[in-house]
Design a protein around this nucleic acid. Sequence first.
RNA 1: UCCCCAGUAGCUCAGUUGGCAGAGCAGAUGGCUGUUAACCAUCGGGUCCGCGGUUCGAGUCCGUGCUGGGGAGCCA
Length: 416
Amino acid sequence: MKNIQIIANNTLKNYNNITNLSTGSAVSVSGKLAESKGSGQKWEVIAKTVEILSVAPETYPLQKKRHTDEFLRTIAHLRPRTNKYGATFRIRSELSYAIHNFFRQKGFKYIHSPVITGSDCEGAGELFRVTTLALDNLPFKDGKTDYTNDFFGKEANLTVSGQLSAEMFALALGDVYTFGPTFRAENSNTSRHVAEFWMVEPEMAFCDLEGNMDLAEEMIKFLTRFVLEECSDDIELFAKYVDKSLIKTLENVASSDFKRLSYTSAVDILKRSEKKFEYDIDWGRDLQTEHERYLTEQYFKKPLIVFDYPKTIKPFYMRLNNDHQTVAAMDVLVPRIGEIIGGSQREERLEVLERRMDEMDMPKENYWWYLDSRRFGSVEHSGFGLGFERLLMLITGIGNIRDVIPFPRTPNNIEF
RNA sequence: UCCCCAGUAGCUCAGUUGGCAGAGCAGAUGGCUGUUAACCAUCGGGUCCGCGGUUCGAGUCCGUGCUGGGGAGCCA
């Protein structure tokens, strides 16, 4: 879809009204598609009739000029009418389709994981509480909120991940994926975080970390190539106005082999580098954003997969490696964005999983159904989470996550 | 949540040691008409983010609050 010019000749009955049209007005035009005499366009419409549906008054906030993203964010209900945001949300739609297309051709089944969950399944992050209790008159028992009369009879939250659900279905249907909204109540104020975002989470049975990394790389390359081929008009707009090097970057992502290195090697490289970091690097500490960006942007200059992280900085469900020090985790890091995928091979051995949960003081009774999957016909399996908005940032060159989602939700911002 | 920066016309911004509030674009009016985030002329347009303070005098200095941006943490 592109803009098209309408030629309104002064022979039209309502020509005078047409000359009074303002930016933002709505018209219905019928006429003849003709080869354009003007330059810079191939086609134009010679109008036979121009019906004026509504004339926008001069208070219409959008002008025929460049606006800042910050301003457009304050009129998020009107910004999809601009060229840039129109292109953004067309690509968002195409990319959603491409994700389903990718998985379908590989035989994955699409699972609808629940949005409301009964427990904090990953033990990670702040949760949004779901309740029908009157918040100005909460029932208490033993000094704590009493949920027995709440809708579900227990504490409920919005999901932070569909992973545990997906694991159950991977152990039933084989390869599966989820693609849906995810909620984090973190007080994060960055250009890479929103409270409500969409996540793609494949989960594969009979698959180890190697296969997991293969899928992550194949998927990002497929999606990048798809957009380069299917959305070239819109991509050109971003290459022109947002990021001049965009197409080169995307072609680099689509064609280069992602560098794979272990956390331990990553730490070695960082320690040997002459670069001064704000945070010291030491085995056992998590890689900071500055470390990740150095590796992917300066050292390797291409996407990078770091694997086998220390178990102390990763969640309970990741598979313990034979060294008993690291787990089979992997993060995909890309230039500019940093972490775009986080995943792991899952701990399929019941005893090891239970021991890990004990070490981390987790209430195993809450996870009885999760542990059942290891009790009955457990097999090795792996999966990851891809931040859909972060992928869109990579693909469009847009620098703020709030500008690739229709109505962004961030701390203190729920307008629209 | 922490650190840094900013808030002046509808939008993007300038504003000198503290001394009468400015430009471009947009808008309105007229002209022009092969244009695409066009051209020419004229005109209108302000709670200088809010509150408090210093001063003869504050857009400018100080305090505080709010909002936005950049970076960090948390992560996708």
